[in-house]
């Protein structure tokens, strides 16, 4: 299972890197979304895969039952998803705003804008 997920993560990262290298800003945002999902999946895999069993500690015991799912990596992913959600919302609005006032979503135009006034 871990091997399969490793390939999935690899494929996702490859797609994301391809998108990040496009000149279209919207595609770059999509690339970042895919990359962040790849990283979330990586976090999930690194927490070790087990058959799903709730990590509830029995009364009196100190450790969750063996073979239960790892709650920490899930907590990490949840946090990362929430943060990613906020950042995605922001960057979409930003790209939209930039498009409205600069009338372009081409990364090359942004490079030229920088050297215009120098």
């Amino acid at each position: 299972m871990e091997t399969l997920l490793a390939f999935v993560i690899g494929a996702l990262v490859a797609v994301a890197v391809y998108q990040l290298q496009r000149r279209d800003l919207v595609r770059m945002v999509i690339g970042i979304v895919i990359l962040s999902n790849a990283v979330n999946l990586l976090l999930f895999t690194l927490g070790r895969m087990t058959r799903a069993e709730a990590p509830l500690i029995e009364i009196g015991a100190k450790l969750p039952p063996e073979g239960s799912a790892n709650p920490l990596s899930q907590a990490l992913i949840l946090t990362a998803i929430v943060i990613g959600f906020g950042l995605l919302a922001f960057s979409l609005v930003l790209v939209y705003r930039a498009y409205r006032s600069l009338d372009t979503v081409d990364a090359q135009d942004f490079v030229e804008l920088e050297f215009d006034d120098a």
Partner: peptide, 27 residues
């Protein structure tokens, strides 16, 4: 806006590197 687009994009990528690193450390 022109400056912010660059600032935001590269910093988002940097955060993902950080997250990957943290994940690998945990693993």
């Amino acid at each position: 806006l022109a400056g912010a687009v660059k600032y935001v994009m590269i910093n988002l990528v940097s955060s993902l590197f950080f997250l990957t690193g943290a994940g690998l450390v945990y693993g």
